[in-house]
Structures are given as C-alpha cells and as structure tokens.
Computed example of a mutant assay.
Amino acid sequence: MVQIPKKEPARRSVPTSADVARLAGVSRATVSYVLNNTSAVRISEPTRRRVHAAARELGYVPHAAARSLRAGHSRMVLMPTSETPLGPLLSQFFNELQWALSRLDYTVVQYASLGMTGEDAARAWAELRPVAVLSPDASALGPRGVEVLKRSGAKAVFTLGPQRVEGAHALLMDGRRVGEAAALHLLARGRRRIGAIVPEEPGLEIFSEPRVEGLRKALRAVRITGASLTEVPLAYDEASAARLAARWRSLGLDGVFAYNDEYAMLLLRALQDEGVAVPDETAVVGSDDLMLGRLLRPRLSTVRIELPSGRGLAELVDRVVRDPGTEPEVHDVLGADVVHRESS
C-alpha cells in the first residue's frame, strides 16, 4: 500500500511594506512616512487612515532593525530595572513615562541587569544599541559606564536618584526634602522627641538614609531646646512591629516619621494593639500619600511627594535625542509637602 505523504500547509508569506502600499493604493515611501510617523513629509489624514487600515488588514508590522539601519540609530529607550523596590509612587511614575515615550514613537525596553554595575552593566546595555538610557540607580552606572553607552551610539543618558554621574543628565530626587518636611511638621505640632523608622530590608538605604538626613537637617536648623532624633529599625512584618510597639513607651518618643505610608500603617496598627494612643502619645507621619492611609482611623498624616509628569520627562528625553550635543543638565525633580490628618 502506497502511503501518500501529507501535504504540508502552505506557509503564509510575511507581509511587506510593498503589500501595504498596493492595498492602500499609495507608494512604499508613503507607507514608510505614515508608519514611521515622519513629520518632515505632509501626508493627508485620509491617506494615513488608508495606510493604517491596510497594515492592520495584512498584519504588517514595521521591522525595527531595518528602520534603525536606515535612521542610523534605534528608537529604543532602555530602562534598566532597579535592585531597589520602587514602591507604588515610582512604579506609577515609570508607567506614565513609558506611555509618554511610546506616544513619541520610542520603544521602551526594561532590562534586568541585576548584580551588574558600572562598566559591565553599561556594556550589557550597549549591546542593544539604545538611542537613550534611563538608569534608575546612578550609583550603578558611573562615568565610565556613561562613556561606554555614548560610544555605542546612545544619544541621551539619564540617571534618576539622589546622585548625579559625570557625563549624564541627572534627574535628582533629593530624599532629604521628605524627611525635612516631616520633621518641620512634627516640630510645629509640638513634638520634640522624634523617631525615624529605618527599614531593615536590604536595598532601601538609598531612600531611607537621605530621609533621615533630612530629619537631622531640620532639627539642626530650628535649634529647639530638647528636640532630638532617634533612629528605630523595623522590619516590614507584623511580628517586628509588635515587638517594637511592646517597648515603644520605653523609647520616650512623642512623634515618629515612619519612612513611608506602608511602614507607617504597619506601625500604627501595632501601636493601637499595644494601647499606645495616636496621636495623643505619639504622632505618626508617613510619606507617599497612599489611598489606604486615608482609610485608616485615625487618618494618616503623610508627606506628599511631587514628581514631574511622565509626559514632560519623555519630551526632555526626545529633545536630548534630537540634540545630543546638549551639555548634561541637572534637573531637580522632587518636591515634598505634608498632608496633615488625624494621626499627627
């Protein structure tokens, strides 16, 4: 018995820009102008709609590598992931930034380079030939890393954090302002023996240390007799908070800045369980102004952190990419003010 070989299903050819042009009734150049959002050439809106409709119907997607070769650089913005947990506020900020960059026709790629720092990290990032790099941890990059990225073709290198790096545009987030705002608020409410919750979790030092420094700075500036600061370590779990609450009265603190709202809520619940009255015995202040803090009783006072809009930062990245000769600039992007509620 002769077996008839099964017929392989015909492979569908990958649609090309020529296919889109034929279906839309335009030239390949017009397809390129429309799908690459080229602003230098004026294309009518009906033509744009026809090209986009034809591309959707055929399932055509522009080839990013080919486009990069034609342009001489990619449209990729590389965002290395941070080893430090960013929290909800910064996560929302980065989501807005990615959306705004995509609206400007950039492709945002998150790169997990955990454990790599300095020149090694920069070399790994440079292999992808990004047109711009946004590093959330300036300490992990360094001047040599910036040089490596620029030699590989990166037109814009930005760092985000409390430090700046030579050769890169710096988006400074001075966490001292958060602690300073909290201290001034507590002092204005008559609190003198102030505690600073210091997270025991590794990696948060980059945020917690500047905030404690801001608390100290405020206390030195006001020079109020009897004002003091005590650092209090706390792990982010209920058992640690319960142990701290059990010895709270022995610390003699009448006010506390609890690093952020999450640690503040953890501490507040433990203090209430221990019978420590808030704010009568101890005023509690967090930061980040999370919705959950408003639902507590007493409602949580907090330092509201102000960050730039993702759209504004995306436009800044685009400006530097278009004019890579721009001298590295320092942008102070963090503001802080206290929202006074019942816990203080």
Score class of each variant (00 low, 15 high):
Val212Glu: 13
Val41Gln: 13
Arg49Ser: 07
Glu209Leu: 15
Asp318Lys: 11
Leu334Met: 15
Ser301His: 03
Leu266Asp: 09
Ala283Glu: 09
Asp261Pro: 09
Val317Gln: 05
Ala24Pro: 02
Glu8Gln: 09
Gln110Arg: 11
Ala218Ile: 00
Arg304His: 14
Gly72Tyr: 11
Val303Arg: 03
Ala124Glu: 13
Val131Ile: 11
Ile194Trp: 03
Glu231Asp: 12
Arg189Asn: 08
Arg319Asp: 09
Arg216Met: 10
Leu266Glu: 09
Ala168Glu: 08
Ala122Ser: 03
Leu296Tyr: 14
Ala64Ile: 05
Glu342Gln: 15
Leu97Ile: 06
Glu274Val: 10
Gly118Thr: 02
Ala258Gln: 01
Phe158Ala: 05
Arg129Val: 02
Leu78Ile: 11
Thr30Phe: 03
Leu251Gly: 05
Arg223His: 14
Lys6Tyr: 03
Val61His: 12
Gln98Cys: 08
Val20Cys: 05
Ala54Phe: 00
Ser344Ile: 07
Arg28Cys: 01
Thr84Asp: 04
Lys6Arg: 14
Pro62Asn: 10
Ser250Trp: 07
Ala235Asp: 02
Asp174Ile: 11
Arg322Ser: 14
Ala183Trp: 03
Arg216Asp: 13
Arg151Leu: 03
Gln163Thr: 10
Arg22Asp: 14
Gly312Cys: 02
Gly286His: 12
Ala196Pro: 01
Gly226Met: 02
Val2Asp: 12
Leu229Ser: 11
His340Lys: 12
Arg189Met: 11
Leu300Phe: 09
Ala138Asp: 05
Glu213Arg: 15
Gly293Cys: 06
Ala40Pro: 02
Ala168His: 12
Asn95Phe: 06
Pro9Gly: 02
Glu83Phe: 04
Trp99Arg: 13
Leu334Arg: 06
Ala241Tyr: 10
Val148Gly: 03
Pro136Lys: 13
Glu147Tyr: 02
Val148Met: 08
Val26Thr: 05
His185Gln: 10
Ala124Met: 05
Gly25Glu: 03
Asp105Cys: 02
Ser32Ala: 12
Gly161Asn: 06
Val109Ser: 08
Glu209Asn: 13
Pro233Arg: 11
Val256Phe: 07
Asp261Thr: 12
Glu180Ser: 10
Met173Gln: 15
Arg211Gln: 13
Leu97Trp: 04
Ile43Pro: 01
Asp280Ser: 13
Val338Ser: 08
Val303Ile: 06
Thr81Cys: 04
Arg243Gly: 15
Glu209Ala: 15
Ser44Met: 04
Leu149Val: 05
Ser27Val: 04
Pro46Asp: 12
Leu186Asp: 01
Val131Met: 09
Pro15Cys: 00
Gly118Ser: 01
Arg151Pro: 00
Ser208Glu: 08
Asn95Glu: 12
Arg294Asp: 12
Asp280Gly: 10
Ser135Glu: 14
Tyr236Ile: 00
Pro324Tyr: 01
Gly275Tyr: 13
Trp99His: 13
Val61Ser: 11
Thr47Pro: 06
Arg177Ile: 04
Gly310Glu: 02
Val232Asn: 09
Ala65Lys: 03
Thr282Pro: 06
Asp337Gly: 14
Ala71Lys: 14
Arg243Ile: 00
Glu83Ala: 14
Leu141Gly: 06
